[in-house]
Computed example of a mutant assay.
Amino acid sequence: MSSTEDTEENSYAARRFQRVKQRFKDRSKVTHFLGVFAYGGFCFILGARPQDVRYIYCLFYITFVPLRWIYYRYKKWHYYLLDFCYYANTIFLIMLLFFPRNQKLFMVTFSFAEATMHPEETEQEVSWRQVESKSFLCTWLFTVPLIAYVLWQVLYFLIVNVLRRQRLLKDPEVMTSYRGLSKKAQKANNIWWRLSGILGDQNRMFMYILLQALFTVATMALTVPIFLSYELHLIFQILKVSAAVWNGGNFLLEVMPRQVVLKERKKLEVAQPPVEDRSQENQPVSGE
């Protein structure tokens, strides 16, 4: 390859790098602006009109969940919509729309989310902290939510591992929670990958379900003291918000740059022929 060709290729690579850099900067600015604006707007509404938060939540749910399904279907991630978080949020949506003053259902959704709710107070309404007994608390903050979780786990297993088993076996690109988490754990070779392999590779699915169940039981057990203590609840909320902000910054500064670089690398691989082909093209053709 001549020096002129080297110069042209380096110039092309430099221009492409600048375009990628500018695209990433623009994308980061938009993402940061929308995230901060949405969070600030929600905090304002939470303080100014807390009674309207339920409607905003419902609007977001019925708008973005279908859009996410369309996008996830295209990416073959649609089985993620069967995860427990969507199951719990659907129950929460039903409570907000149809049973906003149901104390028992509120306690179940509180256990799912461990988040603060501020229902409107009336003379007929019993405060959500005024409960009958500790057994009542344990029943509706731990036992009933745990039964709901077990029901979800059974339904999830039947759908993913029984009804859709052949579909998933035919297409390894279709992602489920187990496939996604096990793939990441195997790549990182972390403690979760080692724990899930205690009973052998053939039982990793069972170990995954068991570990998730243990985590769920442990976190649900915390809801009773959190429900009764304002201080513990406040500390827990601060920890959750801090974790969300930290993960958001990590995504913005580490994950997004990697995604942009990988996407551009794939484009280059498609646009340019392999090195062997280019070297053969540059070789002179011998005459007969």
Rank of each mutant, 00 (worst) to 15 (best):
S3W: 06
S3R: 15
S3M: 14
D6V: 11
T7S: 13
E8A: 12
S11W: 08
S11Q: 11
A14F: 04
A14I: 07
R15C: 03
Q18W: 00
K21V: 00
R23P: 02
K25L: 14
K29H: 12
G35Q: 09
F42D: 08
F44A: 14
L46F: 15
A48P: 00
R49L: 03
R49N: 00
R49D: 13
V53D: 03
R54P: 12
C58E: 01
C58T: 08
Y61W: 10
T63I: 01
T63Y: 04
V65N: 10
P66C: 15
W69F: 14
I70G: 05
Y71P: 06
Y71R: 15
Y74V: 09
K75H: 06
K75M: 09
Y79S: 04
Y80A: 01
L82T: 07
D83L: 04
Y86M: 07
N89E: 06
I94K: 04
M95P: 04
M95A: 13
F98S: 02
F98L: 07
F98I: 02
F99V: 01
P100E: 07
R101T: 13
R101W: 13
R101P: 09
K104Q: 08
F106A: 08
F110C: 03
F112V: 05
F112W: 08
A113N: 15
P119A: 06
E120R: 15
E121K: 15
E121C: 10
T122Q: 08
T122C: 08
Q124W: 02
E125A: 00
V126A: 03
S127T: 04
V131Y: 00
V131Q: 00
E132A: 11
K134Y: 15
K134C: 07
W140K: 05
L141M: 10
Y149E: 01
L151I: 11
Y156D: 02
F157I: 03
I159S: 10
N161F: 13
R165W: 14
Q166E: 11
Q166T: 03
R167T: 14
P172R: 12
S177K: 01
R179Q: 06
L181P: 06
K183R: 05
K184Y: 08
K184I: 12
K187M: 00
S196M: 05
L199I: 08
M207L: 11
Y208Q: 05
L210M: 10
L211P: 06
T219F: 12
L222E: 05
L222C: 06
T223P: 04
T223R: 03
T223E: 03
V224Y: 04
F227E: 10
L228C: 09
S229Y: 09
S229W: 12
E231T: 14
H233I: 06
L234N: 06
Q237L: 09
I238C: 07
L239Y: 04
K240L: 01
V241L: 05
V241M: 00
A243V: 06
A243D: 03
A244H: 09
W246C: 07
N247K: 11
N250E: 13
F251Q: 02
L252M: 14
V255F: 14
V260Q: 11
V261N: 09
E264Y: 14
E269H: 04
P274N: 02
R278C: 07
Q280L: 13
E281M: 08
N282L: 10
Q283T: 07
V285P: 06
